[in-house]
């Protein structure tokens, strides 16, 4: 019973400390700087921009390209 409370207390303190450590580490390691690079880090240099990487197996790519360029124009208008 008492042992359970001790485990509970230790685990709460330990996990709080770990969260703080992780936050401090992230700040020191520069994870909160240069957000642009961070957001692009999932793309490799060889990947083109704005090109879908997943499609239904029956999609006509020519039609899709037309739709995409229309959408891009529409987004650019306002």
């Amino acid at each position: 019973m008492t042992a359970a409370y001790i485990i509970l207390g230790i685990s709460l303190v330990a996990f709080g400390a770990m969260a703080v450590t992780a936050l401090v580490w992230a700040a020191r390691a520069g994870q909160f700087e240069n957000f642009k690079a961070g957001s692009e880090s999932i793309f490799d240099s060889g990947e083109p921009i704005g090109e879908p990487t997943d499609l239904f197996p029956d999609v006509d790519r020519a039609k899709l390209a037309a739709v995409a360029s229309r959408a891009a124009k529409g987004a650019a208008r306002p």
């Binding site: 957000f35 642009k36 879908p52 990487t53």
Partner: peptide
């Protein structure tokens, strides 16, 4: 957070917001 930008081929709107989202959830 991985699939949406990856499929569209555009980076996430705001990486800064995503950091806030993660830490406030935690």
């Amino acid at each position: 957070y991985y699939m949406i930008p990856k499929v569209i081929g555009r980076p996430i709107h705001s990486y800064y917001l995503s950091a806030i989202g993660f830490w406030s959830l935690a």
